[in-house]
Design a protein around this nucleic acid. Structure first.
Length: 810
RNA sequence: GCGGAUGUGGCGGAAUUGGCAGACGCACAAGACUCAAAAUCUUGCGGUGGUGACAUCGUGUGGGUUCAAGUCCCACCAUCCGCACCA
């Protein structure tokens, strides 16, 4: 086959990059419906991009360009999440001021991202460290403060000794810092908190509205952790005090044989008697010294008897009160009633300390003899439960909270695992919290017209480790006057977490230069919310939960008219390297030396080839393994396609019925696969159709209309090649100003079809039939074809039209 | 422990939702071209048996439903991910 004009990816891609720079592809905003396709914006790390990072960007770009060709007004922006720990840690490690290193990194990554040839609208670019941007990050905080959603509290919080800062619960993974992996300890600090718990119910309920992966919805549901139950009051024997416990199983109240309080419980000290005092004090002290990890991972239960007793309001029985660190101080009321017969943890505790076990639910009508583990299901009949005897446990479980409330022993209630958001960081590289502390007026927000509070330029930005931000050392910045009374006052020196800027950036893109408002309401109404959000799954309960919270808040104060930021979410899988020894998939990392750099690939095969391979590598939602020869294969495919195109483009081949059919089928297949987001099979679809077109080339050629159609279909995937082919077909405008082709089903239909002939479900032959051939005729034809094999009694003859013939024989 | 995902040739993966398993690509083999190699092209390529048309087994395992199962049902196994003393 002739190869007169070899596929020169370097020349083609260079040509069209230049062309796009000079004649940007823009589609006029106007009567068109908008489509907002968003990538999770990167933090500009110094390591640069590898082929794994490309994947999400390629997916979103292909989708964006497709939507553009479908006639939408496309919003496809990019920006930089440049505040926060990673950027700052990188700066410290390399001894460069974060403002300089981040600017450098942004420049580098922007250059690398440009290699993807994604159709980003750089006019919309945002950078969270830009004062014109963080002015609004601070503004939101001030609004939250005014609404009572931002508050100060001194409390023991998660502390990363390596990053030397407090962390939110969401940032602690397996007791370790999400960023650096150091073991997280507790530290008592004055903190700024955001009352995300006020939105718990809405954050939970509105998940139903979202077209998100079930996995992510489930993770958020679990994180919010709503449970229903009752708070029950127990009087302490011989004291005025009452202890309130939270339980989801008030139906088992008759089986409560002891009570356990968290060591941090307010009454812990007071409950100790003369005899138990030393042991109790020691236990409380020891617990306070244990790290989170120890406390969570100790399977063996520990505890101490306080010497006091609580009185079960239902039956008046005295139950011993213990302290144990398996009870969490900050969940529920920090105290529980223990029903060892029906709870695993209480059972383990009772066994260890030899406490009584009373069964109150009869499994299968009788008590369990020689109980070896707790019976935790609410299934069975109540026993040993006074008035409640004979009731169904499942029914009682539902009714008990209300019954207890009626009896005056407590109230029905709900609880959440979600905690308020620890929002202050004792670090330099973040948005200053816009608060001024006045000795007389207390915490006063910086007046909105004085925002932003600029992050001062400093020499020393390393974390102090004392629980104070490095900003605290800058006297001339810290000392100011109270906006309320004018007296000397001090600035808040903590900064915001990285998530502050990323919780609302998607709003800013549609109006990134507005200096009067966070976003113009008209523009917000027109262009928001995000239709498609593409990024890794690692933000399932961090960024994605925070963004939802911010959006709901901004909706409440009337900034925007919607309360969910991202209608559809797509999580792309990772691109892994292969372990040289075991062949197993491993995450690409510097230390493993298995990073594949897109720069080399783009040089050797071109951007278009890499884009296609990123998709062809596997189903977009699953992890995949990079394979050099797979990359090679894609390049060969583009060469074959290019050759086919060149052989036909000047031929002026007449359109045949067969070509029309092929063209319509091609549009149908590519479009439906693309709509299903089955991007890997879209690429294999191009290969299949190219193989057919290559065959057609030998049999007379391919017509112009088919080549045009192929070019438009291919363009979102291989934009440079698409433009080049489009131009060579004699067009002068961009292929991206065309319309996505449509198909005509009536022209796709075959007259003849090959169907399988089976005996007892096993294929014996293939016959050709006319599509509308009658059942009897088909069966006759089928039987004739396999006549020699029809040796038994034919029991049944099945014909599924156009699909299959099955002869059932005995 | 709880929840989710995945399991198909030597490899990555397809399969119109119950209808010819293995599309497409990689790797491999043979052939063409070449002095030769690379590139390219052609052909083959799940296992077993047979020169052969063919037979037979085959989608993690074991059962089941059905004319027909990768696909549906039941019970398991393995790998990966998330959560994990939340009362």
């Amino acid at each position: 086959m002739g190869n007169k004009t070899p596929y020169n990816h370097i020349a083609i891609e260079k040509k069209w990059r230049k062309n796009w720079e000079e004649h940007p592809i823009n589609v006029e905003d106007g009567i068109k419906e908008k489509y907002y396709c968003l990538d999770m914006f990167p933090y500009p790390s110094g390591n640069g991009l590898h082929v794994g990072h490309w994947r999400g960007y390629v997916i979103s770009d292909v989708w964006s360009r497709y939507k553009m060709l479908k006639g939408y007004y496309l919003i496809h922006p990019m920006g930089w999440d440049a505040f926060g720990l990673p950027a700052e840690n990188y700066a410290i490690k390399n001894g460069i001021h974060p403002s300089i290193s981040t600017a450098e990194n942004v420049k580098n990554i922007k250059k690398q991202i440009n290699e993807i040839a994604a159709i980003y609208d750089w006019d919309r670019e945002v950078n969270t460290t830009d004062p014109d941007y963080y002015k609004w990050t601070q503004w939101i905080f001030v609004k939250m403060f005014k609404e009572g959603l931002a508050y100060e509290k001194e409390m023991p919080i998660n502390w990363c000794p390596s990053c030397k800062t407090g962390l939110a619960n969401e940032e602690v993974v397996d007791g370790k810092c999400e960023r650096c992996g150091s073991e997280v300890t507790k530290k008592n600090l004055r903190q700024w908190m955001l009352k995300i718990t006020a939105y718990a119910d809405r954050l939970l309920a509105d998940l139903d509205k979202l077209d998100w992966p079930e996995k992510v919805k489930k993770m958020q549901t679990d994180w919010i952790g709503k449970s229903y139950g009752a708070e029950v009051s127990f009087k302490v024997d011989g004291m005025e005090e009452e202890i309130i416990v939270y339980t989801t199983r008030p139906d088992t109240l008759w089986g409560a044989t002891f009570m356990v309080l968290a060591p941090e419980h307010a009454l812990a000290h007071k409950l100790a008697t003369e005899e138990t005092k030393d042991a109790v004090e020691k236990y409380i002290y020891d617990a306070s010294m244990k790290s989170n990890v120890d406390r969570m991972q100790d399977k063996e239960k520990t505890g101490v008897f306080t010497g006091s007793y609580a009185i079960n309001p239902l039956n008046g029985k005295k139950t011993p009160i213990w302290l144990s660190d398996y009870v969490l101080a900050d969940y529920g009321t920090g105290a529980i009633m223990c029903v060892p017969a029906h709870d695993d943890r209480d059972f383990a505790f009772a066994k260890k300390f030899d406490l009584p076990i009373i069964q109150v639910i009869a499994k299968d009508g009788k008590e369990i003899e020689d109980m070896q583990e707790a019976y935790t299901e609410a299934a069975g009949t109540m026993i040993n439960s006074g008035d409640w005897n004979g009731m169904e446990s499942a029914v009682l479980k539902k009714e008990a909270p209300a019954m207890i409330e009626e009896l005056g022993y407590g109230k029905k209630t709900t609880n959440y695992k979600l905690r308020d958001w620890v929002f202050s960081r004792q670090r330099y590289w973040g948005e200053p919290i816009p608060i001024i502390h006045c000795p007389d007026c207390g915490a006063v927000p910086v007046p909105e017209e004085e925002l932003p509070v600029l992050l001062p330029d400093v020499e020393k930005y390393e974390p102090t480790g004392t629980g104070e931000s490095p900003l605290a050392a800058i006297d001339r910045w810290v000392n100011t006057t109270c906006p309320c009374c004018g007296k000397p006052a001090k600035r808040e020196t903590n900064t915001m977490p990285q998530w502050a800027g990323s919780s609302w950036y998607f709003l800013r893109y549609v109006d990134s230069k507005n200096d009067k408002a966070l976003v113009d309401r008209e523009k917000a109404d027109k262009y928001l919310p995000v239709d498609m959000y593409i990024g890794g799954v690692e933000h399932a309960v961090l960024h994605l939960l925070y963004s939802r919270f911010y959006t709901k808040f901004l909706n409440d104060i009337g900034v925007i008219d919607f309360d969910e930021p991202f209608k559809k979410l797509f999580n792309q899988g990772m691109v892994c390297g292969r372990d040289k020894d075991t062949g197993a998939a491993t995450k690409m990392s510097k230390s493993l030396g298995n990073i594949v750099s897109p720069d080399d690939i783009v040089r050797d095969y071109g951007c278009d080839s890499l884009r296609l391979y990123e998709l062809f590598i596997g189903p977009p939602e699953l992890d995949s393994i990079w394979d050099d020869s797979g990359m090679e294969g894609i390049y060969r495919f583009l060469n074959r396609l290019w050759n086919m195109f060149n052989e036909n483009k000047d031929k002026d081949v007449a359109e045949t019925k067969e070509l029309v059919k092929l063209r319509n089928k091609m549009v149908y297949d590519i479009t439906t696969r693309l709509e299903q987001f089955s991007l890997n099979t879209v690429v294999s679809g191009f290969m299949e159709y190219n193989n057919k077109l290559v065959a057609m080339t030998k049999e007379g050629g391919v017509d112009k209309e088919t080549l045009k159609t192929l070019t438009i279909l291919l363009a979102p995937f291989a934009p440079h090649l698409g433009e080049e082919m489009w131009e060579q077909l004699g067009n002068t405008d961009s292929v991206f100003h065309q319309t996505w082709p449509s198909y005509d089903e009536s022209k796709m239909a075959d007259d003849e079809k090959e169907i399988a002939v089976q005996i007892n479900g096993k294929t014996k032959a293939v016959i050709k039939i006319a599509v509308d051939e009658a059942k009897d005729a088909v069966i006759e034809k089928a039987k004739a074809e396999i006549a020699d094999k029809l040796t038994g009694n034919v029991v049944k003859e099945i014909y599924v039209p156009g699909r299959i013939v099955n002869i059932v024989m005995k």
